[in-house]
Design a protein around this nucleic acid. Structure first.
Lengths: 348, 348
DNA sequence: CACTGGATTGTTAGCGCTCACACACGTCGG
DNA sequence: CCGACGTGTGTGAGCGCTAACAATCCAGTG
């Protein structure tokens, strides 16, 4: 009684054509907004589409146009606030441009991790990819692998032959360091991120440059792995140095390479009985949502992750469309956010 | 001199067939691991594939098999630690099963946001989707819309006719509340999350149930929006109540519905000169990476987000493959993490 | 030595769509 | 009144693949 295959197969363009009394090609024209279709015909087709609940089959479309309208994203740790926010901005932008975003997380570092990720994306025919892989090794691998589609990096390709978007990390570090010096500190200590991370290197570089410009010999760099725990350890070391009081550089200010580690540093200092900012001022980097509620609220550098995501999509699309003018590096400006952790308060 | 179109078109199955001296069907058989292919033939084909750098065209494959091997994810705010972690676990699991994961973020709440997101995914022919949309309204919309592919919720479909995976939020809240009562507190105050969130409601429910089981009349519920700032405001209110000292319920313990808000509460208490945990004990929920470094380290409930992601993919695949046994609700157990914020310390 | 049956391989027909082209109409200028 | 043109529409081919079927080969069997 009921039509046999109706529920099984979604309606096709031919079905719509039959329903509207036109050819499938006319349906296609209506769907792709071709101008040369009579208004009445267009309406009939639209009505038929509506009636049948028709959707264009993206696989068939991709097959013939050779365009999947899909963009891949490779992210190292999408659990971190930065990558997660970038991802969100990127996804929004891509969607506005009519692209779907497929994400692949990089299984922790292993040698072939990046290659596998690219393979996975390639197997699904993405038209391009954004790599949020801010480690030196990853970017080098990327340059070596030469994937079959354009790739844009986020915080990656400084100086390499790959287009990318990045925050001016060095400027951010400079702003913080200048700020701390301007507050009256003799020198500024630094807790860096992992050596392999480009962001980490750039932040250290900015810090070092400012000190040297002021004729200050940079103290030894402490190093963490972005985690609060590693910051805690670094903080313990700083506390020890601060209390010892001797040695070349007095510990009265520290620029920590990200907010999470700064949280750990703050904790270690507090445990050692050192007050922030009165005895040791602390600044971070990222401006995670929690930063304003740290004890004390943290001076930090705000990154506009959403803008970074948006710009990277923009850049990638230029490369996909072929309108890109060479290998461009977009740089986004950071913003210094001054809070209590570096402000000598009146009270207490 | 060079072959004309070589660089333009990636090699096709026919190219491989020619190169290997077999039919394209044999190539297809090799690729899909069909058993009835002679070993020597298989090797020739494999070699030809290697030589040409051939990859199967996923669009053509999807067209004929009617399977896109793509799964969609709808996430409300992938910037939050929970959703981000779930997403990561989910993505890993899906990849292991040979699926690509495409993400769509829900533009903040708007009426048609969910519908648009589903549309977007449907347009790309996903085989199923996971919805990380823990708001009551979203889940109701989901139930109403009946998308053309199976959908599994994360923290969503309690009691609804949609399969889903969720943490036993109520149990988590119970664990915390019991713990606080066991520590000797007369009652436990509660800072809840947004009313529209199911997780929020479940946590409040668990808290209320335990108090009532102990014959304690639950104090008025304070409410935030998950953000540290909202926690800060709630904390100010709590501090006021604590210092006022009068009123029915003494403020000596608070269960805050997530760690971020707990950070704000801690800050507000500290500013009011109230010590944690000595005067007011505070517990959170989620166990974000920072929680162990809060001032003081925060007692909280750990969620295994990775497991949740994995289980949701598993569940979704069952529905895609059609092997699902009805509308299942998978529940993951939470774990209480006791830290200093609820422990009466000896010193100070 | 013809005959059966499994293993191996080839042939054919689409999947649903877009592209290139062909065709039917006008309308207009010469 | 005829050809050139522009508008709207239909026709045919084919994107690269898999599924169904057909064909072939080579034992082993009676």
């Amino acid at each position: 009684m009921t039509r046999p295959t109706e529920a099984l197969r979604p309606p096709t363009m031919a079905d719509v054509a039959r329903e509207a009394g036109v050819s499938h090609q006319t349906v296609s024209r209506v769907l792709s907004g071709h101008p040369n279709v009579r208004a009445t015909t267009r309406e009939q087709v639209t009505a038929a589409i509506e009636r049948l609940g028709y959707r264009r089959n993206s696989a068939a479309r991709a097959l013939v146009t050779r365009r999947s309208r899909t963009i891949g994203v490779i992210a190292v740790d999408p659990t971190l606030y930065g990558p997660a926010s970038t991802l969100a901005g990127l996804q929004e932008a891509a969607r506005d441009e009519g692209y779907l975003v497929s994400t692949v997380t990089l299984r922790s570092g292993g040698g072939h991790a990046l290659e596998d990720a690219l393979d996975h994306l390639a197997a699904w025919g993405v038209e391009g990819a954004v790599a949020i892989t801010p480690q030196r090794s990853s970017v080098q691998a990327l340059a070596r692998l030469a994937p079959p589609f354009p790739v844009v990096t986020v915080e990656g390709s400084h100086g390499l032959d790959i287009p990318g978007v990045s925050l001016d990390q060095e400027l951010g570090a400079r702003l913080v360091t200048e700020h701390l010096l301007a507050t009256g500190h003799e020198t500024v200590w630094h807790v860096a991120g992992p050596e392999d991370w480009l962001e980490s290197a750039a932040r250290t570089e900015g810090w070092r440059a400012v000190l040297e410009e002021h004729g200050i010999r940079p103290p030894r760099v402490l190093r963490g792995d972005w985690s609060p725990l590693s910051g805690y350890h670094a903080g313990q070391e700083l506390a020890g140095l601060a209390l010892a009081g001797r040695g070349a550089a007095p510990v009265t200010a520290a620029f920590v390479a990200n907010d999470q580690m700064a949280l750990g540093v703050l904790r270690a200092l507090r445990e050692a009985g050192i007050r922030t900012p009165q005895q040791v001022a602390v600044a971070g980097f990222d401006d995670i949502p929690e930063a304003g509620f740290f004890p004390p609220p943290l001076t930090t550098v705000r990154q506009d992750f959403t803008a970074i995501g948006r710009r990277s999509i923009q850049l990638l699309l230029e490369h996909i469309e072929g309108t890109a003018a060479g290998v461009e590096h977009v740089v986004v400006e950071p913003q210094l956010i001054v809070r209590a952790s570096t402000r000598s308060q009146d009270g207490a």
